[in-house]
Each structure stands twice: as structure tokens, then as C-alpha cells.
Simulated scan of single mutants.
Amino acid sequence: MQVRLGAAPGVGPIVAACLLARMPELRRLSSRQVAALAGLAPFDRQSGNTSRPGRCPDGRPSVRRSLYLAALTIARSGKGDFAATTRRLRGAGKPFKLAIVATMRKLLITLNAMVKNNTKYRNA
């Protein structure tokens, strides 16, 4: 399974091992649940008429760190579908961190689907 995860862009043996060790729930949870578990799902913090931007609280720090480094590698390489997501968001005027977190979430959801369906990575 680790070899299969390593086929995805930005995911090396360390990121794959971290995901398998720190997130044994992969393949059993939905994409939303996996993203929330990793701390990549924005939650609204609104009360009354106040409107604040969504935050991604909590999550598992080691998983979040390894996905951050993978997404950063993807964004710097500029190749593939995940890098296109980062470029598209940056082109729309979104902050760099927001674009990286969106790439992290997309990467994690893709990896979860790969493990769940027992398939190899393929470009969309």
C-alpha cells in the first residue's frame, strides 16, 4: 500500500509512511471525514451578524505537516493537476497559505480514494 501512495506526486516514502501510521482510518472514512481528521476542513465561526473567515482547527499535526511539505513540493514543481489547483487559486488572488491548504486537502482526498478503491494514481 505504501508503494501505491508513493506513486502520487509529492508523496515520497516518508509522507506515505506517516499517513499509514498516523491515519489508520484511511479507506474507512469519507473524504470529508478524512479532511476534518487531518485538520484540513474549514469550519465557520460565526455568531449573530459577525462573519469571520473559516478556520481549519485541530487535526493531527504530524499528518498536517507531512501533507504541507508534499503540497509545497507540488506547488514549487509546477507540474500536474495539483500544481494547477495551486496556480488557479493564486491567479484568483487567494493567499498562498489558502492555496496550499486546498492542495493539501485535494491530495489527501485523492490518496484516500486510491487506498479505498485499491487503485494506482492517475492524472485526472
Rank of each mutant, 00 (worst) to 15 (best):
M114L: 15
A21R: 07
C56G: 00
S62M: 02
L108K: 11
N118Y: 03
A113R: 13
T103W: 13
S51K: 14
A75F: 14
R4T: 03
G80C: 14
A7V: 08
R122Q: 13
A84Q: 04
R87H: 12
A124I: 00
P24G: 02
L72Y: 12
G39H: 09
L72F: 14
L107K: 01
S77C: 15
T85S: 01
R90G: 02
L40G: 06
F82W: 13
R22E: 15
T119W: 06
A99W: 01
N49Y: 00
D81M: 13
K97S: 02
T119M: 02
P53E: 12
L72K: 02
M1T: 09
P9I: 04
R52E: 15
L20F: 11
L107W: 08
V11M: 09
P13E: 02
T85K: 07
N117F: 02
L19N: 07
G6A: 07
V3D: 07
S51G: 01
M1E: 01
K116V: 08
N118E: 08
Q2F: 08
C56S: 06
G6F: 11
R88Y: 13
K120G: 06
Q33K: 10
R28Q: 13
R64N: 15
R45D: 12
D58R: 15
K79R: 15
K120Y: 00
G12Y: 09
M1A: 10
I74K: 09
Y121C: 00
I14P: 05
L107V: 12
K94M: 11
I74V: 15
G54S: 14
G12S: 09
A16Y: 07
A84L: 11
P9E: 03
I14R: 07
K97G: 06
N112A: 03
K106G: 02
A83Q: 15
V34K: 09
L26W: 12
D81A: 14
R32G: 07
G48W: 06
R88A: 05
P24L: 10
V11H: 03
R55C: 02
Q46A: 10
R87S: 07
R28F: 12
P24S: 13
L111S: 03
L20A: 05
A92Q: 04
T50V: 13
P61S: 08
L40S: 02
V101G: 08
A92P: 01
T110M: 11
I74R: 04
R64M: 14
A17Y: 08
M104S: 10
A83W: 13
A7Y: 11
P24A: 09
R88T: 11
L98M: 06
A70C: 01
A38K: 05
L89T: 04
R27D: 01
L20G: 08
F43D: 04
Q46G: 05
R122K: 07
Q2L: 06
G93M: 10
L19C: 01
M1S: 11
L19E: 02
A36E: 00
A113W: 12
G54N: 06
P95F: 00
S47W: 15
A99I: 01
S66N: 00
R76Y: 13
L67E: 01
R55A: 10
G78W: 15
F96R: 12
L5M: 11
Y68W: 15
M104P: 03
Q46F: 13
T119A: 03
N123Q: 14
F43P: 01
F96V: 12
T50M: 14
G78P: 08
R88K: 10
R27P: 03
V15F: 03
A99H: 00
R45S: 13
R122M: 07
A99E: 04
R65G: 02
L67S: 01
